[in-house]
Amino acid sequence: MAAPVSRPEPPPKREGVSPAAMKCVPSEMTLRLAQLPERWAHLPKPLIPGEVRRGALKYKITPKIEALAVPRPRSEKAKTEDDAGPWTISKSALKYKATPRILELAKPIERD
């Protein structure tokens, strides 16, 4: 039996980067453009979800905001109507009669 032929393996290529680009020396303008602009250096820190700021913890609620935070009292009639079910149809909706224009718009367009 013949022995397998040994072939030299080429060096691994770096995908997307040519050898000429690896030897490139950046110009002064390229280095300056690669830096973060000065106007972005003083941006406020991003908000972290769930974190409460100290100023919010020291806040004193006003009487008006406290009154607005309380939900309106519901009447007994509204409570019984809501308990009827989520899929009930109101009586006024059942009495609706479509106008001729609505009926005209509801018809499908006849196409050839």
Rank of each mutant, 00 (worst) to 15 (best):
K64P: 03
P86L: 00
R74P: 00
P11L: 12
R74I: 08
S92P: 01
M22F: 04
Q35Y: 07
P100A: 01
I61G: 08
T99D: 07
Y96E: 05
P19V: 01
S27K: 03
T62Y: 05
L47G: 02
L36G: 02
K79V: 13
A34E: 01
V52C: 11
G16P: 01
P100E: 06
I48D: 10
K64G: 00
A41W: 11
P37G: 02
P63M: 00
E81D: 09
P4C: 06
I61E: 13
R32A: 15
P100L: 00
K23L: 09
P71E: 04
S18L: 03
D83H: 04
R54C: 10
L57S: 12
V25F: 03
E81Y: 02
L36P: 00
A34V: 01
I48R: 15
A98R: 08
Y96W: 08
Q35A: 14
A20I: 00
P8S: 06
K60I: 12
R72D: 13
P46F: 08
E15T: 08
K91R: 14
W87K: 10
A84C: 03
A34Q: 01
A67I: 02
P46S: 11
L43D: 09
T62H: 05
E15I: 07
K45Q: 13
E38S: 12
I61A: 15
A21V: 06
T30Y: 03
K91N: 09
H42V: 14
P73S: 12
K23R: 12
A84L: 12
K23A: 15
P8K: 00
W40Y: 14
A34W: 00
R7A: 10
M22W: 09
V70T: 11
S27Q: 02
K13T: 07
W87A: 09
A56G: 10
L57V: 13
A98F: 10
P10A: 07
S18P: 05
P37W: 07
G85I: 00
V52W: 07
